[in-house]
């Protein structure tokens, strides 16, 4: 039997989460004795198979078809289900990305199997897989088992370490029947920013109500520029209209786990902590010494962010 990783690519470029999923898949395959397979779906993407081989894949199945140029959940789920029917894998892994969040459950419904979403860890012990998944936005962690021959999981980005390894590296074609899409994509609008995407970023600089207004985010962006960071926001700043909702970190926004999270002018409400509490290192900058952010920050600076951040930017520039 096998572990299958559903490869995510956009415009012919592999997403980082795919390498994370393959690396985790390899670790689990080694523990359980399964083979590791990758399913690569798209149009004109066969060339990407070589890159996948670096992560210990035993076999890459390529579905290369013009009708698959644009991702839609109904069509991609049909392709995946056909592959699963042929392969009968023990475990199928997806990234917990915008695509994975939609495609995994649609596929799970098609093959009627259990799926654990947004996993922080997967382990293999006593002949079964155990999945841990945060509930109440990380306020509690549940451990789950999946009943049935096929199990599915989506993996939270930025949590699983990427590791290259050896594998058989075979490449095979897979050509299932492709149904007509019920959805037509009429436009795509990618944010023009060259900053990393929030959920994938290694470093995030976030601002909140303490910035005093939308113009305060210029400071945060300046800091993000020198750190190569993504820019996030507290709910308060989004509700005040200073920032788009897409930037909101927290229970009703994005859940992130970067290596470094710099929270400036953010009080640290429980809903915000739910979205960034799994960050490796947290820095809190706030003029209110009693702000809750200081209860979770690894490094806390009580002070005026209008003075601290420019000084920090200068200091970081000196290093470059």
């Amino acid at each position: 039997m096998s572990i299958v990783v559903c490869v995510e690519q956009r415009d012919g470029k592999l997403r980082k989460i795919t390498f994370e999923a393959l690396s985790e898949g390899k670790r689990l395959a080694t523990a359980s004795g399964e083979t590791l397979k990758a399913l690569l779906i798209g149009s004109g993407i066969a060339g990407l198979a070589d890159e996948l081989k670096k992560y210990g894949v035993d076999e890459v199945a390529v579905v290369d078809n013009e009708a698959l140029a644009a991702y839609t959940s109904d069509v991609y789920a049909a392709v995946l289900a056909a592959y699963i029917a042929q392969e009968n894998p023990a475990l199928v892994l997806f990234g917990h990305s915008a695509v994975g969040k939609e495609l995994a459950p649609r596929t799970a419904a098609k093959v009627d199997c259990g799926l654990v979403s947004d996993c922080l860890a997967v382990t293999f012990a006593d002949g079964d897989y155990l999945f841990s998944h945060p509930v109440y936005a990380g306020k509690a962690i549940g451990s789950y088992k999946v009943v049935g021959p096929v199990r599915m999981a989506t993996l939270r980005p930025n949590v699983f370490a990427v590791a290259e390894s050896e594998g058989a590296g075979a490449v095979v074609d897979f050509a299932p029947e492709i149904p007509a899409a019920k959805v037509t994509i009429t436009g795509v609008d990618m944010a023009s920013s060259d900053r990393p995407e929030l959920t994938e970023a290694d470093i995030i600089c976030s601002g909140g109500r303490g910035l005093g207004g939308p113009e305060g985010f210029a400071l945060i962006e300046g800091l993000a520029d020198v750190l190569g960071a993504a820019v996030g926001s507290s709910r308060a700043a989004v509700d005040a209209g200073w920032r788009e909702h897409a930037a909101q970190v927290g229970q009703t926004g994005k859940v992130v786990s970067p290596n470094l999270y710099v929270a400036s002018g953010i009080s640290g409400a429980i809903q915000h902590l739910a979205g960034m509490g799994s960050s490796k290192v947290i820095v809190g900058i706030n003029k209110d010494g009693e702000a809750n952010i200081f209860n979770v920050a690894d490094y806390g600076i009580e002070g005026d962010l209008n003075k601290v951040i420019p000084a920090l930017i200068e200091k970081l520039k000196e290093l470059q």
Binding site: D112, C113, G114, L115, V116, L130, P134, V135, G138, K139, A140, I141, G142, S143, Y144, K145, V146, V147, G148, G277, S278, I282, F294, N295, V296, A297, D298, Y299, G300, I301, E302, G303, K307, V308, A311, L312, E314, K315
Partner: peptide
């Protein structure tokens, strides 16, 4: 159900770390 909860636990609480104090330049 095909997904079964084995156990739930609270995540390890984060602890407050160091508070850096002093002049802005020193702190930074």
């Amino acid at each position: 159900s095909k997904v079964e909860l084995v156990a739930a636990e609270l995540p390890p609480a984060r602890k407050a770390g160091q508070r850096l104090t002093g002049e802005v330049d020193e702190v930074v």
